[in-house]
Design a protein around this nucleic acid. Structure first.
Length: 434
RNA sequence: CGGGGAGUGGCGCAGCCUGGUAGCGCACCUGUUUUGGGAACAGGGGGUCGCAAGUUCGAAUCUUGUCUCCCCGACCA
């Protein structure tokens, strides 16, 4: 992408409405713009990063055996009245009336809808286990939206729903999601710790929140120092195998948010910090299947209410969480796996023919190799180009200027480490396409 | 919902107390000189001052109402 033809509205000053660093940087880097309180438009750069995060979530869900589908944002109130949550959910649910005066709502979650689909179609235990998910926009009319996309009213969420014939099988489904979540967050460069959670309005008795550590997190967290040495990617996840040992490994050590923390009954030597909840998984048994009459016939011929779990990831919130966890005073530092572009190609002198020729050549080579590259080909001054690249935080900056070209070199800068290395064009292209 | 604050060119703000027809910085456009860490000079465009009533010869400024946004608290992926 050529920056001269891109839409990247940078803000030099610190926006006054943004209190936390991820919100400030997302506004400044031209990723998002607020549309109304807690509701945002995703500008091209922000959308690109959002799609990267979404792709990782999707890959790990698929790997764990979940099947993607898509349910609507607008739902009929009927199912919610049937489950009893139409009244329970309260003012947080955005209620809408259509032209025929039918009660509708903008979905805050999808347990009812998925259960309805299930009960209409599935009759036999032979169809189980089943886990279906979608990645869809949700709306919860938060009392007070804040922190940009971290707590918006409209947000993108991955929610998966598992169906099993028995509690034992249901726990296996739960464990698959548990491990998928460990991998998902790790791949985004995040350290996420599963913590025993309050099940809240969704209900159930088995539940974990996945908390990313960040100073600006919303809840206080307490966890065993042993987590410092835990690496989710070290354990090879074989989703067909018994995952209980991995889950046990991660849940045997103490970890709790403030609401679940028990100072009377925890190890003495704990890490304390703040965290951002980026995922929440529940096993709630037959709570919804009973309310909505979703049952299957077992091999013994008896009918049984299906055992369900639900598994959420705050996809749009993750963008904020990643930036909270990875930035410096100059801007965002994207982990390569979720960076909107892998490399920013900086043409120091657009009006210098030799310089531009080399840049064009590098640009087409990188594009041809499938490298996501943002070519800074504007007429801006050097300082502005550097500041902008640091702000948007692409992992690599390739600086091409007449000064270096005189000696046959370009400069490759690593955003995270700040290291700059001079090398030939060929070496730089080779490094970036490796 | 309770408490606090703010709405004035795209952004950040001043002006309001003490009414007289709107200003600064950045951004934007043109030109010239510049060009390796957010350039300089000159010229230029852009605002019915959130909205609505009212007071007044006259309202950004005073009064009332209303909408929106932000911050603190209770609630949430």
């Amino acid at each position: 992408m050529r920056l001269s033809r891109y839409f990247l509205p940078i803000i030099k000053e610190t926006p006054s409405e943004a209190q936390i660093v991820s919100h400030r940087l997302m506004l400044r880097a031209g990723m998002i713009r607020q549309s109304s309180s807690g509701i945002y438009s995703w500008l091209p750069l922000g959308l690109k990063a959002l799609k990267k995060v979404e792709a990782i979530v999707r890959e790990e869900q698929n790997a764990a055996g979940a099947i993607e589908m898509l349910m609507p944002t607008i739902q009929s109130a009927d199912l919610w009245k049937e489950s009893g949550r139409y009244d329970d959910y309260g003012a947080e649910m955005l209620r809408i009336t259509d032209r025929h005066q039918r009660d509708m709502l903008y979905g805050p979650t999808n347990e009812e809808l998925i259960t309805d689909i299930f009960r209409r179609e599935v009759r036999s235990y032979k169809s189980l286990p089943l886990n279906m998910y979608h990645i869809q926009w949700k709306f919860r009319d938060e009392i007070r939206p804040r922190f940009g996309v971290m707590r918006g009213r409209e947000f993108l969420m991955k929610d998966a729903y598992s169906f099993d014939v028995s509690k034992e099988e249901g726990v296996k489904s739960y464990n698959r999601m548990f491990v998928a979540y460990l991998r998902t967050f790790a791949r985004m460069g995040l350290k996420a710790i599963p913590m025993r959670a309050d099940t809240g309005p969704i209900g159930g008795d088995l539940s974990h929140e996945f908390i990313v550590l960040a100073d600006t997190g919303e809840s206080e967290v307490f966890f065993d120092k042993a987590f410092d040495g835990f690496d989710p990617m070290a354990e090879k996840a074989e989703f067909g195998a018994d995952l209980q040992p991995i889950v046990d490994h991660w849940t045997s050590k103490y970890a709790a948010t403030d609401e679940m923390h028990d100072p009377e009954n925890c190890p003495a030597d704990l890490n304390e910090g703040r965290g951002i909840e980026v995922g929440h998984i529940f096993f709630f048994g037959d709570k919804y299947s009973k309310a909505l009459g979703a049952s299957v016939q077992r091999s013994d011929g008896e009918n049984t209410f299906v055992q369900m779990g639900s598994y959420g990831v705050g996809v749009s919130r993750l963008l904020g969480a990643i930036i909270e966890a990875s930035h410096d005073e100059n801007g965002i530092i994207w982990p390569e796996s979720v960076a909107p572009f892998k490399v920013g190609l900086i043409n120091m002198r657009v009006d210098d023919e030799a310089c531009s020729t080399v840049c064009e050549d590098i640009y087409s080579q990188l594009e041809a190799a499938g490298v996501d590259v943002l070519y800074e080909d504007t007429n801006e001054r050097a300082g502005g180009k550097f500041a902008k690249m640091d702000l948007i935080g692409l992992p690599w900056q390739l600086v091409v200027g007449p000064r270096g070209l005189k000696n046959g070199v370009v400069e490759l800068k690593n955003r995270a480490s700040g290291d700059r290395i001079e090398m030939t064009v060929e070496a730089a292209v080779a490094k970036l396409t490796a």
